[in-house]
Design a protein around this nucleic acid. Structure first.
Lengths: 232, 232
DNA sequence: ACTTGTCAAGCGAGCGTTCGTTCTATAAAT
DNA sequence: ATTTATAGAACGAACGCTCGCTTGACAAGT
């Protein structure tokens, strides 16, 4: 089973500290990391329940137990806080989906299956972060919204490339809808957008990965290559 | 081709006037309708570009050309405005998807195809309304958020019912994923969530309906019933 | 024909509140 | 003693909402 490394809350906050050392005025790394984790997890919790823009810094102060002034030791504006989180999400997408293991890139079908699995596993590990970055994106200031949109476009382009390669290699059924790469995205996004629903229904990550892979492959593979129970 | 009636901006605002006659203090129906249309279209435009909660009533006043006081002749609070729009959306979903034409209900496959088409055509006609109701829902006050969630659940239950019926009738391939009805929803929602993208790529409503129907039916029909180019 | 009275409709300054942000005083650590 | 971290009061701007005033169409009275 695919393993992703380096995307726990701890890893991500550590990366944030490096990336934004210029605006974070707290010097001691261990103190900074400990508090940053508390602040970020409170920010994700509040944003994902009431929206980033509706979350006031007083809410965040109360939820995290850090005073108003204390918060401003970790960012210099509310928009900077937004950007700090956003950077980690887009960075994770780039580094994970952009670096497929060598053994899958030669076969577009395997590459496609890997992209589906990697995307779902990454969003599972970073669920509140993805909800934040893409569900809230519409309400972001213009520049930050643009970054979220670009990140989404990049993901879709990866699916478009691998699909085009599969078609060029004659691996797909002729006449399969050109909308296929576009339609994969909403299926993947549903995993983190509606995470609570799937949890309630006891659908596991593996169940969901298998279901999406089945639906996509059944749509695009030639009929004679379909195996009825979920393909191995 | 399926025709839906009664969901133009004009129809919807007329319905709003009746439904909320108690809070709308403007008496002359033609005056009220004309202004309400202006106000609602401005509200949808602003909400969909910056979020409902980020839209101030001063923004709305400026965009619609109606003064602050004038706005309050049409609603008694910002939340009431939200509810007025929300009611029209959930009402349209109930009345359209809940009333399939008699000729499709006997055949679950035809019913399923009809549900897909009707959903996409309805959201096409009411695109800004659906974006408002479901993309903004997360930021709504608790009660209003509940109404949006309920409406989504109702839609999914319609797909679950027709799917269950198809399986009971032996019309689906054995072993098709039980997640199918759940996965249809995100495909349908993408049409109004990412409407701008599809417009840019010159994907028509009919193209999209055909693509979703193809993907869903290819996934669930027995292999020997698949026709390779989009089924008629 | 012209004035006057009436009232629905519309306006925008201003209310109290809360927002993001800053600042100063203090506590803790080295 | 000096740096580092923290708390929370204070500030101006902007928020949802209210309210007293103006406008304009129309009917009654002359």
């Amino acid at each position: 089973m695919l393993e992703l490394k380096g995307h726990t809350g701890d890893d991500l906050c550590r990366s944030m500290l490096e990336r934004h050392a210029d605006v974070i005025s707290v010097q001691k790394p261990d103190v900074a990391l400990k508090k940053l984790k508390i602040i970020i997890s409170a920010a994700l919790k509040l944003s994902n329940s009431k929206g980033f823009q509706a979350m006031s810094l007083r809410d965040l102060s109360k939820e995290s137990g850090v005073s108003m002034g204390g918060l401003y030791a970790y960012f210099d504006s509310k928009t900077t806080l937004l950007n700090m989180i956003l950077s980690e999400v887009t960075g994770a997408v780039d580094s994970v989906l952009g670096n497929p293991p060598p053994e899958v890139v030669s076969d577009p079908i395997e590459h496609l299956k890997w992209l589906i699995e990697a995307h779902i596993r990454l969003t599972e590990e970073m669920q509140p972060w993805f909800s934040f970055a893409f569900m809230e994106a519409k309400n972001f200031p213009a520049k930050e919204r643009g970054r979220a949109v670009d990140s989404e476009a990049l993901t879709e382009s990866l699916f478009a490339e691998v699909t085009a390669r599969a078609i060029a290699d004659g691996r797909f059924r002729p006449g399969v809808t050109p909308l296929l790469p576009t339609m994969i995205k909403p299926l993947l996004q549903d995993w983190y957008v509606k995470r609570a629903k799937y949890r309630r229904r006891k659908v596991s990550v593996d169940d969901y990965i298998a279901a999406v892979q089945e639906m996509v492959l059944t749509t695009c593979l030639p009929v004679d290559q379909l195996s009825h129970p979920a393909a191995g």
